[in-house]
Design a protein around this nucleic acid. Sequence first.
DNA 1: TGTACATCAGTGAACGCGCGTTCACTGATGTAC
DNA 2: TGTACATCAGTGAACGCGCGTTCACTGATGTAC
Lengths: 199, 199
Amino acid sequence: MNAVPARKRSRDGQATREKIFKEALHLFARKGFDATSIKDIATAVGVADAALYRHFASKDEIASAIFTFHYSNLARSVTALAEHSENFGVALRQLVTLLCELFDDSPDVFAFILLNQHDHLRFIRDEDNVVSEIVAIMQRAIARKEISIDKPELAASLALGVAIQPAVFCLYGRLQRPLGQYRDEIETAVAAALGLRVK
Amino acid sequence: MNAVPARKRSRDGQATREKIFKEALHLFARKGFDATSIKDIATAVGVADAALYRHFASKDEIASAIFTFHYSNLARSVTALAEHSENFGVALRQLVTLLCELFDDSPDVFAFILLNQHDHLRFIRDEDNVVSEIVAIMQRAIARKEISIDKPELAASLALGVAIQPAVFCLYGRLQRPLGQYRDEIETAVAAALGLRVK
DNA sequence: TGTACATCAGTGAACGCGCGTTCACTGATGTAC
DNA sequence: TGTACATCAGTGAACGCGCGTTCACTGATGTAC
């Protein structure tokens, strides 16, 4: 009795590391960073607490690794999209589509970034900051007289507000999912809020 | 030596209670609930940690008392305003004004409610919920064909997004204060986003 | 007005708990010869 | 193919710290007589 069952133990720590990434993201997104303990994550992954420290130096490092990975992905998508759109209307359509897809495919990623942006953004270079990129898009639109709001930061806040708040409502159950079903209405609302001039 | 200086000690605990209210609100708004310790609050108030328990049963109770007080105030203002506006355009103007004034006069209250709404809203009766009230306003506007967006929850999310996001930008320094300077632009943007029909 | 007493805001020290983290150890796996 | 060894993911127990909270006590204030 009391025989320890032989455990299959892969030497590929990568698999465990990815599972920590996934489970920690899920817990942080649902309960928040502080309310999630190392024990919670370890239990979800199926290992002892101490095992996490074979893959990450600290609890903070788990959160910042997750944030940096997903936020950089998002920033790259937004930058790429901004560079390849010949006018604001096209960029707007693609941005709203991107947001809806991110939310519907990965609500955990959306919630995690939304909740933790202010704790981590100071470690992100300004040119990789999504909000800064949106402001830059607005600047170009204003320079080309494509929209009537004339302050880029204000325009960015109005656009982000219209785009993000429906997602927040979905997250808390005030709007039915998927967010994608409202894509056209959101796009129209952003365009109207900014005073997009019809081509 | 070691003489304890005679302390002026008022028997009016009300003054201390109000100071706890004010300082805790400030700390919770700036650092968040978890990152604020009982010691932090006591130091800001100028008393020992244990003194806080003469006025509140627990740390949680401090936060929920603050939330309930300020949130109820806000809910009452919104309800009153909704009842006394004969059409949607008037209600909208007053709502945006209310939000700008709340933010500019009491940024701590704004930030605290914004950050803590989801932890406390389950203790608020639904008819006192500000978001529910906004949805109701949208329902009436839709019934009267005052706006073209036809789903009340979606309309509420678009309106709240346009109104709140500029405040968030102010809070984090992306937009200059006061928020009130953008009042007209915010109002116009909300109206446009909802498809308000000109009277 | 003076005295005895009840009240209560505030204190300093202590408590217990949960947390993130460390550490010596295990044992399976991969590898060199 | 067999053997000795290095590697390393994972473990269970322990540690120390900071936190929220409790408690016996203090002393000023208000009040009854």
